[in-house]
Design a protein around this nucleic acid. Structure first.
Lengths: 148, 148
DNA sequence: CTAGGATTTCCCAATTTTTCCCACTTCCGC
DNA sequence: GCGGAAGTGGGAAAAATTGGGAAATCCTAG
């Protein structure tokens, strides 16, 4: 289970230095490749490759001719890239994914259970502000009785 | 299984330089021709020729007398072209297909499992914006409980 | 039927990009 | 303070894209 937040920087070549704390559980010590893809909230998702497979399978099983599903397929599968970390544990993020998520330099890593989210730092801040602004965030249906 | 997004340009002669990371899985190292055809969403579909055959067979098996199927047949079969890549791995896209998909120069390659989609870049952006705009993307029926 | 022109096709070469690896610096633990 | 590990940056070799040019083919007109 991935959790925790880390702020890191991309270097000039678009390489993302994955912190060791994140890297080892993610790649199981370098033996497993990772998959990077896109999320509608304009952040990226980072899976260990084996964990991505069932997700992709579910998305691909959507009916092809129903227009409502196509955008989701295009986003989740269309942006997915299987990557390996270089010798120094860095991830080369493609220009397409960087453009999609508005990532240039400063980035936030957010553990989310079966995957990590990668946010442009500025966009992450805005996301936080929206949640904490106004004192009382809106509760989605079914969460009214949730206790921490 | 094809996945991933690549932005590329047509040159002045209408040649599409298929990126290596797309080309090799698609043509299995140059041994297999490809088929390019049209999709109702105004993008093009790119199949390895062997993978196209069963799709064409299924489309051709649609009932001829039901008028609802005819547009699909006309698009999918009517626009289909079998092509080979030139020595530099480029695809010569016919003026008809370029006109259909509104492609002039900047183009997006989107992996979609058994085929690639080819979009005019501007049209692709619009397609993305519709999904990511408003903060809460529309979930099609049956997808409410989908978890990533 | 022949010749000219235009278009298409194929191939080569230069530039640009990518990939891989090495070295330095900084931070943390011992 | 010292040793080790992790993060950072840069550079060189390889590969891929881009553009152009020459040859072959097709079409048209004389």
């Amino acid at each position: 289970m991935f959790q925790g937040a880390s702020q890191i920087n991309l270097d000039a070549k678009g390489r993302l230095a994955v912190p060791t704390r994140v890297r080892d559980p993610l790649t199981q010590g370098g033996t497993v490749p990772v998959v990077l893809t896109a999320h509608p909230d304009k952040c990226l998702l980072l899976y260990p490759a084996p964990a991505w497979e069932p997700v992709r399978a579910k998305v691909m099983a959507f009916p092809s001719l129903d227009p409502a599903f196509n955008p989701w397929k295009r986003l989740l599968v269309g942006f997915a890239e299987e990557l390996s970390l270089d010798g120094a544990g860095r991830l080369l993020v493609s220009p397409e994914l960087r453009a999609f998520a508005g990532i240039d330099k400063r980035v936030m890593f957010i553990g989310q259970g079966s995957y990590y989210e990668i946010w442009d730092l500025e966009r992450w801040q805005q996301q936080l502000d929206r949640l904490t602004a106004g004192g009382s965030p809106v509760l989605p249906p079914g969460m009214e009785n949730f206790s921490l």
